[in-house]
Nucleic acid binder design. Structure first.
Length: 409
DNA sequence: GACAGAATAT
DNA sequence: AATATTCTGT
C-alpha cells in the first residue's frame, strides 16, 4: 500500500521526531506573518512542554523520550526566537556568552538565546541544548536522577566485574584491608541479599581497617568478641527478642532490620591461614586437645576470632575424626606423631617441617588478614607459593584431606 | 560470664 | 561444602 507519511508511521527510530519537527518547521516557515509563526511555534512548544511534564514521572524509564522532547522544544524555541529576533531587536545579547561559555557555535544564537532569557527558568535545561555536548550534559544530569536508584546497579556492575577476579564475599576472598577499601563492595555483598539497609552496622563491624581490625581482634581474644558477632544479631532467628518495655521504639520493620543486620562476613580460610591453623594444632597437641582460643593465639593472625577458629576446628575434627585423645599423651610428644599422621597438607604449602612454626624461613609474624587473602601476604611471598590455592578460594578440605588412622594424638 | 563443643543455619 | 551462629554444658 501507499507510503505512509512519516508522522503517521510507527517508526520509532530516533530520527522520527526530528523529522516531525522538521516538517513542522517547514510548515511554519511558509507562514508569512511572523506573529502567526511565533504563536504557532510557541503553541507547539507548549504542547511539547506539556508532554514533557507528563512523562516527567517516567523520566527514568523514558530517558530517550525526555531527550527527544527536550530536543524538540529547544529546536522550536530557537526557531521561535529567531523569528522574533528578526523583527524585534533583542537587547539582551550579553547574556548569551555568560551562559554558553562556548559561543563558538555556528549558531547565531546571540539573538535567539537572548530571547531565551525570558524563559530561562522553565528551560533551565535548555541552556545546554545548543549542541550535542550540551545534550550530553543534560543526559548526564539525567543520569543523576537515575543513579539514586541505579546506584546499586551500577555499583553492582562494578562489583560484578570485580567479583569475577576476586569476590570478597562469596569468594570469601578477604575481609581485611582490601575490603576496607571497598565499602561499596561490602555494601553490595549484603545489599544484593537483604541486609543492605544495615550498611552502617555492617560496615562498622566488618570493614576492617587496620584499626578496626584490632578492635575485632581484641574481641576475638576474649569475651568482648561476643559483642561483635552477637551483639549485632542479638535477636537472631532463634533468639528471643529482648522485650522492650519502652513504648515500642522500634517499628517492626526496624526490628527486622536489626535481626537481619549483620551476618559476619565469612572468614576465608586460605591455605596460608589453614597452614597456620595446622601449625598451631601441632604445637598444641592435635586437634582433639587444642582449644580454639589457644589455636587462635598461636596462629597470630590479625583479626581472627575465636569463633572462626572454633568453627574451623570443628570442621577439621570432622574431617580428621579419630580415636579420643589419650589423656596421657603430652602435647609435645604428640606433635611429632601428628606430624606424620595428622592430616597434613602442609607439604603442599612447602616444607614446613612439622609444627616447628617457622615455615621455610618466613618469620611467622602476625598475619594480617587484610593482605593475607588479597594476594600479598605480609608474611612474605614464600609462604604463598601456592598462589592458586591462596589467591582464590578458601581452603578445600576434601581436596587435601587424609583420613588419619587413629593413632595420631 | 568466658569457653568449648555440638547442633543448626546460611 | 564452608562458615557463621546458636544452643548447651562446664
Amino acid at each position: 500500500m501507499g507510503s505512509v507519511p512519516p508522522e503517521l508511521s510507527l517508526d520509532f527510530r530516533p530520527t522520527f521526531v526530528p523529522k516531525t519537527i522538521t516538517n513542522f518547521l517547514k510548515e511554519v516557515s511558509v507562514i508569512g506573518n511572523v506573529s502567526d509563526k511565533v504563536s504557532k511555534l510557541d503553541a507547539f512548544v507548549k504542547r511539547l512542554e506539556e508532554e514533557m511534564r507528563k512523562i516527567d514521572a517516567f523520566k527514568r524509564e523514558l530517558p530517550l523520550c525526555m531527550l527527544l522532547l527536550n530536543d524538540a522544544i529547544v529546536t522550536l524555541k530557537e526557531e521561535s526566537m529567531q523569528c522574533m529576533a528578526r523583527t524585534v531587536e533583542p537587547v539582551l545579547e550579553e547574556f548569551i556568552p555568560l551562559k554558553n561559555t562556548k559561543k563558538e557555535n555556528n549558531h547565531s544564537e546571540e539573538d535567539g538565546a537572548s530571547i531565551t532569557t525570558k524563559k530561562e527558568k522553565d528551560c533551565n535545561n535548555n541552556n545546554n541544548y545548543n549542541n550535542n555536548k550540551d545534550k550530553k550534559n543534560w543526559m548526564s544530569s539525567f543520569q543523576l536522577w537515575n543513579t539514586d536508584d541505579d546506584n546499586f546497579r551500577s555499583t553492582d556492575h562494578k562489583l560484578d566485574t570485580k567479583r569475577n577476579d576476586e569476590d570478597p564475599f562469596q569468594g570469601c576472598k578477604n575481609r581485611g584491608a582490601a575490603r576496607a577499601f571497598m565499602p561499596f563492595k561490602a555494601n553490595l555483598g549484603f545489599a544484593v541479599r537483604k541486609e543492605e539497609k544495615e550498611e552502617i552496622p555492617v560496615h562498622g563491624l566488618t570493614l576492617l581497617t587496620p584499626g578496626i581490625k584490632n578492635l575485632k581482634e581484641e574481641s576475638g581474644s576474649t569475651g568482648s568478641r561476643t559483642s561483635c558477632s552477637r551483639a549485632v544479631s542479638s535477636s537472631a532467628p532463634n533468639a528471643q527478642p529482648s522485650f522492650r518495655s519502652e513504648s515500642q521504639p522500634l517499628s517492626h520493620h526496624q526490628q527486622q532490620q536489626q535481626q537481619q543486620t549483620a551476618r559476619k562476613q565469612r572468614r576465608c580460610w586460605s591455605p596460608e591461614l589453614h597452614r597456620r591453623f595446622v601449625n598451631a594444632l601441632q604445637q598444641l597437641g592435635g586437634s582433639q586437645v587444642a582449644t580454639p582460643k589457644q589455636i587462635r593465639e598461636l596462629m597470630q593472625v590479625d583479626g581472627l576470632t575465636n569463633d572462626e577458629v572454633k568453627s574451623h576446628l570443628q570442621k577439621y575434627r570432622l574431617h580428621t575424626r579419630r580415636l579420643p585423645p589419650s589423656t596421657t599423651t603430652p602435647a609435645n610428644q604428640s606433635v611429632v606423631v601428628l606430624g606424620s599422621n595428622l592430616w597434613m597438607s602442609q607439604d603442599q604449602y612447602g616444607d614446613s617441617s612439622k609444627g616447628s612454626s617457622s615455615q621455610s624461613g618466613s618469620p611467622q609474624g602476625p598475619l594480617q588478614l587484610a593482605t593475607n587473602t588479597g594476594g600479598t601476604s605480609t608474611t612474605g611471598g614464600d609462604s604463598m607459593e601456592d598462589d592458586e590455592d591462596t589467591k582464590s578460594e578458601s581452603y578445600s578440605w576434601k581436596s587435601h584431606i587424609h583420613k588419619p588412622g587413629k593413632d595420631d594424638v
